[in-house]
Design a protein around this nucleic acid. Structure first.
Lengths: 216, 216
DNA sequence: TCGCTTATGTGACTTTGGTTACAAATGATC
DNA sequence: GATCATTTGTAACCAAAGTCACATAAGCGA
């Protein structure tokens, strides 16, 4: 991709950043395409860049020692990854996994530039702080969900979020995969999905869930 | 308290901060004492300062619309409050509650200075970023606990954390209050505490739990 | 000491979610 | 279309946690 084209894209997706900063991003950032399904970040691999997402979605999950997994949130175009900042910052192993759910186009910023720009560009400073703040809030919402809600509500919430970020009313997932994301078991998810179908909220198919109305 | 005394305390508790910065903190910060039991922050009240804690502990909890509550973590001397940064940053209502569990002495930094110092002082910059990172990790650990662990383990973990921050093997709490923090019910907590007692991990008394060995 | 309030103990029961063990359906491939 | 792997459906059962009902017990103040 041409630098000028990159500059255009940047202007469109991160319009709140000042011009000089965007020039530097074009200069020092490395554009990368990540095919759907690829891991951007896995447990414990040290991070040396911070991604700015142009296109596609990224699913962020948490995994514990015993292999239990749980869905945290999606990242979309215009987002950056606060958790990559965590890993980078203290060189520590954070058991976080980030997978591209659609083909992702992102520009990779070297960590060193990160810090440099914080001082140099007010807009970058606010962007990074907002990223942190937004992710903290997102994690709090995740906690709400896990701590206070029952599995059926959590499924509905998961379907809603997934439908929103993928911008589609037809989701492609197996009950097994959903069970994994919600740290439950396949049978439980099948049971509850069936109930949602009976309520007329969704329509089930093999490898597919059609969303009719999640607010019934 | 004298400015010079304040300066000494600051030097002792936040020694990683550079001298000029400490001088500014003394100059612009306001020293406050918060008696045990007082709220530092409640749901939705906008924050105009960031506290640096010298003495005492602060318990941070999350509450949802329906009044369900859950313990997140403790803040101790040397900490700041990343969540106050959230509230301040976007002027948004975050349903977070911070209560002093012991008498707290803290210095309150006006938000404006916060931003100013980020650019001016490298040590402040790293301190704030580390605060964010550390709290994000803490929240992830909270998620692990809620999502992956059963109630008995969660109680043990809660007792351990509380004992550590209060630096005491004798805790003063009712089963009801613990139930609230873990978003459970009194009877369940009583039952499980009794089991822990039978295993010899704790000794129960009225309004009191004596910790014997939580690693049995 | 006598009440009274607050805290704890406990049994019985319900609900939610996890487990086991299959059966049936769907799609892909030959 | 027959075969096969994958996915989904379901029933029966189990375990954890929440609820209800009530019994004690411990501390406090009059």
């Amino acid at each position: 991709m041409e630098k000028t084209e990159l500059s255009q894209i940047l202007k469109a997706n991160f319009k709140h950043l000042e011009n000089d900063l965007r020039d530097e991003i074009v200069q020092f950032g490395k554009l990368e395409s990540i095919p759907a399904g690829d891991l951007l970040m896995d447990m414990g691999s040290p991070i040396t860049y911070v991604p700015l997402i142009f296109e596609g979605n990224i699913k962020v999950t948490r995994e514990d020692e015993e292999g239990n997994e749980i869905f945290l949130y999606y990242l979309e175009s215009g987002d950056s990854c606060a958790l990559s900042l965590i890993c980078s910052g203290r060189e520590r192993i954070s058991r976080i996994r980030a997978v591209a759910t659609e083909d992702v186009v992102a520009i990779m910023i070297p960590i060193a530039k990160m810090d440099e720009w914080m001082v140099k560009y007010k807009t970058w400073y606010y962007f990074v702080l907002e990223t942190y703040q937004y992710r903290l809030e997102e994690l709090l919402r995740t906690i709400d969900s896990i701590a206070f809600k029952k599995m059926d509500d959590r499924i509905v919430e998961y379907l809603r979020k997934t439908s929103e970020t993928q911008n589609s009313l037809t989701l492609h997932a197996t009950h097994q995969s959903i069970a994994q994301e919600l740290n439950s078991s396949r049978e439980v998810i099948s049971r509850l999905l069936k109930k949602l179908e009976q309520k007329g909220m969704i329509k089930l198919g093999r490898n597919q869930i059609e969303i009719i109305d999640l607010f019934l």
